[in-house]
């Protein structure tokens, strides 16, 4: 099976050349198609940096990163945007819904970024499947935390991406909501045959994944 994500000797550092802060050092790993992987590790170990690099929103200092066999290190912003639009869905810890758009409009944003227009019914259908049929025209400020996160997941899944990157998706939710959120995410990931890479502090969630990658001090343990 082709690797959905492939990191080869990837390093990431910030700051001056004289005294750089090394966040990741020579990371090597890959994620296969349809594989669900969790990344765990202590705070500051570099977990989120891996997600940032895989999404193309951050640039590696060294090494090679391939998304569906396409090298993304060195690409320009427009090309990275295109790869992200077509292949990747991102779920953030803080949901990050657009505050003046309704639930439906937030999901439609993803479709329209991919130049799929007049797809309102599809967006509503997915939101209904996520139990939000009564919240379709509500603004984020009118939704609970759990509802907001479900909208965020719907936004990430609507384009049927090959890869979902989730950065502590249950970090701002209570345990009940966390559980139902992860059930939703796992169900739809498997259903749509998508790879899922998830950063989490929750061991119970990590254990539900196909594989766990442990990071410590910028290196895979």
């Amino acid at each position: 099976m082709n690797a959905a994500i492939q990191f080869n000797n990837v390093s990431l550092s910030y700051g001056s050349k004289v005294d750089p802060v090394e966040v990741l050092k020579g990371i090597n790993f890959s994620v296969s198609s349809e594989e669900i992987v969790s990344i765990i590790g202590p705070s500051g170990s570099g977990k989120t940096s891996i997600i940032m690099l895989a999404s193309g929103l951050e640039t590696a200092t060294e090494g090679s990163i391939k998304i569906n066999s396409q090298e993304i290190v060195g690409l320009k912003e427009n090309n990275l945007s295109e790869i992200r639009r077509k292949n990747i869905g991102i779920v953030f810890q803080s949901f990050y819904l657009i505050p003046n758009l309704t639930a439906t409009e937030n999901v439609l944003l993803s479709l329209e970024a991919n130049q799929k227009y007049n797809q309102e019914e599809e967006a509503k259908k997915l939101l209904s499947e996520f139990g939000l049929s009564h919240r379709l025209d509500h603004l984020p400020s009118e939704l609970s935390g759990g509802e907001q996160q479900r909208v965020a997941i719907a936004r990430a899944l609507i384009n049927k991406p090959k890869i979902i990157l989730a950065d502590e998706p249950t970090g701002n939710l209570d345990s009940a909501n966390s559980q139902s959120m992860m059930d939703l995410l796992f169900e739809y990931t498997k259903k749509s045959k998508t790879s899922l890479v998830m950063v989490t502090h929750d061991n119970s969630i990590a254990e539900r994944c196909d594989r766990i990658i442990e990071i410590k001090d910028g290196q895979i343990v």
């Binding site: 945007s81 639009r85 657009i98 944003l109 970024a113």
Partner: peptide
Amino acid sequence: AVKKSIGFS
């Protein structure tokens, strides 16, 4: 920033 993360330039 969210729009950029989704893929808008």
